[in-house]
Design a protein around this nucleic acid. Structure first.
Length: 412
RNA sequence: GCGGACGUAGCUCAGCUGGUAGAGCUCUCGGUUGUGGUCCGAGCGGUCGCGGGUUCGAGUCCCGUCGUUCGCCCCA
């Protein structure tokens, strides 16, 4: 036996009741918006075949290379706690032959995800995400709709000061060609770049656009831009998305430097930035992934979707002042020491069955202690059981003495 | 993987230049109150993260270690 104190594993957290209520309220609001947009609830397993993520998310991504919780089951199969939501939904789409359903198939999910990273504000090893996937259509109006939906969802949640960054990655081939060109350009100017940018030329050249470093900024001012390299169809698709968002009155910044760290993204990508400063101000990111389904063994199928971090949303909400209403019982029953407690327990059962939230003392408190509890609980009605009668006290009203037999009748 | 800060009661923290622990809140009880949210009092509650070292003596200094947290990278 060790003396080590047991505690929640690093990067995880307990949802205490108060926060639990805020989450449930957020869930309720999100579900309402999602339903109106025609998305249906969907769930996939929390762990999947490791290969799904290796192929879907991409071998070269940070997520797959160093952030997955991977383990072997007793049969020697390699399984991985899902680090994101899209791959699992895509797998299910293929597995259940959902390409035979009317397209697009619009699904939403809410649940836990896992990434082995260093935790910091708004970033955890187990975190929750709400997301949608619309599979089976490459119609740009679906992209625009997803952005619109996300904007409305954030609005409904109570996050108001948000900024939308929008870009297009084009087709995978075009993107790869562009990145090669960008790398060449950066290497030609290596001497003028900051150390960290230079070190990331191979891994993540797009980050160079975000640098504060003066020399780097000067170099990047003339660097080739991804959006300029879009081919005809991709350019047209993106223009259509932008036009639709304009029509819908959504304001956004077209930002060619937007990076999404998952390999499956193609064409439209976007990111919602919350009101908080810092690296984790990205509340939600999403985009199109027209090659993913094929990559994991399905028929060529386009798709678009997003994920939004619940903890980051809630962080943003702290500023916006959204709180959950405390849950107070309707009735609290206090029992005098010499009175029959069975009576109270029986009433509780009846009241609860009738849909009334009712509670009593379970700690053997004195009557004073019980009434203190009753007051704290916020109950509108307090019943004091005495041996010969009961007193019903309603907020702001005079005490009402009653025979035991009449108590339930007046409460229900 | 890399930096910074911090680790004293359930919570928030105080403990000055080292002398073997305090406050407020919470909780329980008693008094007061029109049998409850006020006020007063009492009580419960801590191997000062852990392990070494210096010292007559360490929560207080040094080293290590574990943990938490913030940031970088990356991402939701």
């Amino acid at each position: 036996m060790s003396d080590r104190k047991l505690q929640a594993p690093r990067g995880t957290f307990d949802v205490l009741p108060e926060d639990g209520q805020r989450r449930r309220e957020l869930y309720r609001r999100a579900g309402s918006v999602l339903g109106r947009y025609g998305y249906r609830p969907f769930e996939t397993p929390v762990f999947e075949d490791t290969e799904l993520f290796a192929r879907g998310v991409g071998e070269s991504t940070d997520i797959v290379r160093k952030e997955m919780f991977t383990f072997e089951d007793r049969g020697g199969r390699s399984l991985t706690l899902r680090p994101e939501g899209t791959a699992g939904v895509a797998r299910a789409y293929v597995e259940h032959g959902m390409h035979k359903l009317p397209q697009p198939v619009k699904l939403w999910y809410w649940g836990p995800f896992f990434r082995h990273e260093r935790a910091q504000a708004g970033r955890y090893r187990q975190f929750a995400q709400v997301g949608v996937e619309a599979l089976g259509s490459d119609d740009p109006s679906l992209d625009a709709e997803a952005v619109l939906l996300l904007a409305e969802l954030l609005e409904a949640a109570g996050v108001h000061e948000i900024r939308l960054r929008l870009s297009s990655l084009g087709s995978p081939d075009a993107r790869a060609a562009y990145l090669d060109g960008l790398r060449r350009y950066l290497r030609d100017h290596e001497g003028e770049l900051s150390d960290d940018v230079r070190g990331r030329i191979d891994a993540n050249p797009l980050r160079a656009f975000d640098a504060d470093h003066e020399g780097t900024r000067a170099v990047m001012a003339n660097a080739p831009r991804l959006l300029d390299s879009l081919t005809g169809d991709d350019a047209e698709h993106f223009a259509e998305v932008c036009a639709l968002l304009n029509d819908a009155g959504v304001s956004y910044d077209v930002d060619a430097t937007l990076v999404r760290g998952l390999d499956y993204y193609t064409r439209t990508t976007w990111e919602f930035i919350g009101p908080l400063d810092g690296a984790n101000s990205t509340i939600s990111g999403g985009g199109r992934y027209d090659g993913l389904i094929e990559e994991i063994g399905g028929p060529p199928t386009p798709g678009v979707g997003f994920g939004a971090g619940i903890e980051r949303l809630l962080l943003a909400l702290e500023d916006a002042g959204v709180t959950a209403e405390p849950s107070a019982p309707d009735v609290f029953i206090a029992v005098e020491p010499d009175a029959p407690r069975e009576l109270a327990l029986g009433w509780l059962k009846e009241l609860r069955a009738a849909g009334v939230a009712a509670d009593t003392d379970y700690a053997g408190r004195s009557l004073k202690g019980q009434l203190t509890q009753a007051g704290r609980s916020g109950a509108h009605t307090i019943v004091i059981v005495r041996s010969s009668e009961a007193v019903v006290r309603r907020q702001g009203a005079q005490d009402e003495p009653l025979a035991h037999a009449d108590v339930l009748g007046t409460l229900l």
